[in-house]
């Protein structure tokens, strides 16, 4: 039950993008088309899940075991950077089109604060190994959900008559704000 709550909490109630405002850069940058948005979401989910597992191991068996908690940031960033490199090679091998569509945002997953945020949250909340992985999957799916919803709205928006001063980034930010407001509605779902 605890695990299920962590999952729901990460996807909806404490959605990384729309409640914690982490990972806004790809949220704005890659939410133009549903296809690339979902691919980006799954790439991030993959990195989140793997990094949740590895950072938990590092935290438990290196940082806590040797009592060097101040190395948290350094070690987590190393892991994330390596994972992103790995994902980049993988996607490039699997689909050149997808690789081109994601463009610069793929290596930028390294600096996606949602991923470092997840690693730090996991350490802070003292989750168990399974809980931490579920937390990672949940956060990733929440991120994907936010991106896909945003992309869906933006695809419709291409057909709408947006006033000139609001076109482009401006209307995107307004929509992001409205979406965040809407996600506030989930706040009562779980009493944390």
């Amino acid at each position: 039950m605890e695990v299920f709550l962590i999952f729901i909490s990460a996807v909806l109630v404490n959605n990384f993008v729309l409640s914690y405002f982490l990972g806004i850069c790809p949220f704005i940058g890659v939410s133009g088309k549903i296809e690339s948005a979902s691919s980006m979401g799954f790439a991030v989910t993959f990195v989140l899940t793997l990094s949740a597992a590895i950072t938990w191991l590092i935290n438990r068996y290196i940082l806590i075991a040797f009592n060097v908690p101040f190395l948290e940031y350094v070690s987590f960033i190393i892991v994330i950077a390596a994972l992103v490199q790995f994902v980049e090679m993988f996607i490039r091998r699997m689909s050149k089109t997808l690789y081109d569509a994601l463009g610069i945002y793929l290596p930028l997953i390294t600096t996606n604060c949602a991923i470092l945020g997840l690693a730090l949250f996991g350490a802070l909340r003292q989750y168990s190994f399974i809980e931490n992985i579920v937390f990672g999957i949940g956060a990733g799916l929440g991120f994907t959900l936010a991106l896909v919803v945003m992309a869906g709205i933006r695809e419709e928006l291409d057909l709408a008559d947006v006033p000139k001063p609001l076109q482009g980034a401006a209307i995107t930010l307004i929509i992001a704000g409205l979406l965040a407001l809407a996600f506030m509605g989930f706040a009562g779902l779980i009493s944390a």
Binding site: V68, L71, S75, I78
Partner: peptide, 11 residues
């Protein structure tokens, strides 16, 4: 020493 070895090892 621990810091250098552990981070170096991870890297």
């Amino acid at each position: 020493f621990i810091s250098i070895v552990s981070m170096g090892g991870v890297g």
